[in-house]
């Protein structure tokens, strides 16, 4: 028998290539990726666009967009450049979005995994706690936490994570409940594997994909929550934030509407990009679900 006779199938393309082929079939998802790339680029190049403090006075107050070349998108009532604030705001939105999502997913995984894996009274107790968190209106709880912890950006991020972990916890719990009695888990258990490594090394990797897709939703919600806080003037005053720009622009809405319209459009496009991205990821991961 020669090598030629063996029925070796042609090498399958690597998994990420398959994934990308599936992803790009969805044109809306491509648009989402494009918008997302722009926001990331803005966040990365903020220092190049304006090496100084974005909150410093850059020119005359209330210059309309496309008039002065040094402040292309105009200035607000304090003479701060809208363009530099927009770029630095992208940084804060993304940073808060990513970190708050991490916090919420970590809390969600721990609570959901314990409830789903152990069941019984642990599940009962943790689910009642989850229900309590779902019952309290999350924005009111967020305001309270910010009132208690203060308006530093780190605390705001943690607080946003703390008010948005319930949905991932429920998803993780459902996944764990369906996975905990599968053969591979039983096999590992019979080999004497400890509960901790059963949870984190056997079950969790299998439970993660839907959570990763859902992360895009949490990210979008976190950005909306941060901007709403900043809009109300409860954000960190030391950083440029889109929500804060809109809140400040409210005072001059009558004469200089662009002060709030420009950052507003930035928020809409960013949140839109996350929604589209999430839908695209979902379709690419479960190609059979969509018929």
């Amino acid at each position: 028998m020669t090598v030629l006779d063996t029925d070796l199938r042609p090498a399958e393309p690597p998994r990420y290539v398959v994934f990308w082929r599936r992803y790009r079939r969805n044109r809306a998802a491509l648009l989402g990726l494009f918008l997302f790339a722009i926001v990331v680029l803005m966040a990365l190049t903020a220092g190049l666009v304006d090496p100084g403090d974005p909150l410093r006075r850059a020119g005359q107050p209330l210059v309309p967009p496309f008039v002065d070349a040094s402040t292309p998108l105009g200035t607000d009532q304090l003479g701060r450049s809208i363009l530099s604030q927009l770029f630095y705001g992208a940084r804060i939105s993304l940073l808060v979005g990513v970190l708050a999502t991490l916090v919420s997913i970590i809390i969600g995984i721990v609570i959901g995994a314990l409830a789903g894996y152990f069941g019984g009274w642990v599940d009962d107790l943790l689910m009642r706690v989850t229900e309590a968190f779902q019952t309290i209106p999350n924005f009111v709880l967020l305001l309270t936490l910010v009132a208690i912890l203060g308006s530093k950006i780190e605390w705001i991020t943690v607080a946003i994570g703390v008010v948005s972990w319930t949905a991932p916890a429920r998803m993780v719990r459902a996944e764990f409940m369906s996975l905990r009695n599968r053969e591979f888990v039983d096999a590992a258990r019979n080999l004497g594997v400890s509960n901790t490594s059963l949870i984190f090394r056997e079950i969790l990797p299998n439970a993660l994909p839907p959570i990763i897709v859902y992360a895009s939703v949490i990210m979008a919600l976190s950005i909306l929550l941060e901007s709403a806080l900043a809009f109300l003037g409860l954000g960190d005053p030391n950083y440029a934030s889109w929500g804060n720009m809109i809140g400040q622009g409210r005072a001059v809405l009558r004469t200089a509407w662009y002060c709030s319209a420009i950052p507003g459009i930035a928020i809409v496009l960013t949140v839109l990009s996350f929604s589209l991205l999430g839908e695209g990821l979902n379709d690419a991961m479960n190609p059979r679900q969509k018929q």
Partner: peptide, 13 residues
């Protein structure tokens, strides 16, 4: 999708 992405405060203004 656009309604979903628009924060209520921006829409209000």
């Amino acid at each position: 999708l656009i309604f979903y992405a628009t924060p209520s405060f921006f829409l209000s203004l």
